[in-house]
């Protein structure tokens, strides 16, 4: 392998990412090439200098700060649970109201509801149907007394 090719392999070799066979070839080349071995040494020095930069100081309160802020921000999945809980509360209130009404006026709750047609067939003394009857009587020359 020539120097150009070896130079390209130096960085992945340093990173431990090179195929072992290629690595052996690089090693063999470096033993006999001053220019490439100089490049390799410079890479080693760079790595050492990068690692000498001190890491940022540890922040021991970071976990506590995050946890404190999370108290007001539940996981999104919790929204569904909250909605279900509210639905259950509303259902309970509605059922409670219905049972209370049944307990106070048992007949009202158990009496069969009048159908729409039965209401229409009953004689009406109020509302639109009554007006309708009065109007027909007047048209036929009669009145309520005549009936």
């Amino acid at each position: 392998m020539n120097c150009r090719r070896i130079t390209r392999l130096l960085s992945p070799w340093q990173d431990g990412e090179l195929d072992p066979d290629l690595g052996r070839e690089v090693e063999r080349h470096l033993r006999g090439c001053a220019a490439c071995s100089g490049r390799w040494a410079a890479l080693g020095e760079l790595r050492q200098r990068l690692l000498r930069v001190p890491p940022p100081a540890d922040d021991p309160f970071l976990p506590a700060r995050v946890m404190a802020r999370l108290q007001a921000r539940p996981v999104r999945g919790g929204r569904l649970l909250r909605a279900a809980a509210w639905a259950a509360v509303f259902a309970a209130v509605f059922a409670g109201g219905f049972l209370l009404q049944t307990a106070i006026a048992p007949g009202a709750a158990t009496a069969p509801a009048a159908s729409y047609s039965s209401v229409l067939l009953e004689p009406q003394e109020f509302g639109l149907l009554s007006v309708h009857d009065d109007f027909l009587d007047l048209f036929n020359g009669g009145g309520r007394e005549a009936r």
């Binding site: 390209r8 960085s11 992945p12 990173d15 090693e27 470096l30 033993r31 090439c33 001053a34 220019a35 071995s37 100089g38 490049r39 390799w40 040494a41 410079a42 890479l43 080693g44 020095e45 760079l46 200098r49 990068l50």
Partner: peptide, 26 residues
Amino acid sequence: ISRAKSRLKKSLRLQESGGEAVMQAR
């Protein structure tokens, strides 16, 4: 990564010299 290293080497003016340093670095 390779280009980043090359650029840093150049800007920090790291000398690419000394074949004897090879085995030391290894």
